[in-house]
Amino acid sequence: MTILVIVEHDNKTILPATLNTITAAAALLEPIEALIFGNELEDVAKQASTIASITKVLSANSEEYAHNLAENIAPLIQKIASDYSHIFAPATTFGKNIMPRVAALLDMMQISDIIEVISSDTFKRPIYAGNALATVKSSDPIKLITVRSTAFDMADLNGGSASIETITASGDSGLSEFKSSELSGSERPELTSAGIIISGGRGMQDGANFAMLENIADKLGAAVGASRAAVDAGFAPNDYQVGQTGKVVAPDLYMAVGISGAIQHLAGMKDSKVIVAINKDEEAPIFQVADYGLVADLFDAVPELENKLS
């Protein structure tokens, strides 16, 4: 048995969710190889080779992989899949886009968003926005798995010295083409790996008011998140959204400000270690999951919080 982990990177570093994915794969105690594709791979291939549990790094360097187009990448993974018992990828938009395409090409059923490895064929995954947990056993010869990063620790980037092997590219499908991207590129920590998150909801009333949360975030080294209502209203960019259909986070501290606590929002943050809610409505469902609830007008409480943190 050998396991393949699909690496997500930004040409400079391996992205954190891949490190959580490696920890999930390592639970099976089998050799793990890492597949890296793109068109600027030197730094990331070296980085992958330093991870203790990685025994080999496969690097596919070619123009057609520059933008992670699933139509180009799925055939590459399909070509090498038979060497592996398991293929793991992070359940990020990158992994969710590519892996089902690979699964269908291989005629295998993917196991999405696992939160626990029970044995080599049995895994636990949330369904119904995390209101139920299903334990599923796969009968497929190769298990294709995406991993919920918050459920596993990050693998260390040291202690390993894997070999790096170049593999040949599979060509351009000609089906789709990258045009442009608009990345938020904030200086703050990434939502999914931040230790502290402060999120705003519809109660923030205005995008400009998010500056209050940003100031607090900067004092605490925190990331800023949002509810869907806040994103839909244009208060915050889409990649701030926490929840069933946004990002799933589990920081040490999650502060929900002006967020009511709909099940779809709770689905994305209820595994946080400590939850704080600031809401003027004492009946708001967010208080049912909050360790510390403050019933207050956020326009009083948040500026006071900011002052007291200085």
Partner: peptide
């Protein structure tokens, strides 16, 4: 909608 923001692609 991708994790880092938005991306535009053209598909046949």
């Amino acid at each position: 909608e991708i994790d880092g923001g938005l991306e535009t692609i053209s598909v046949k």
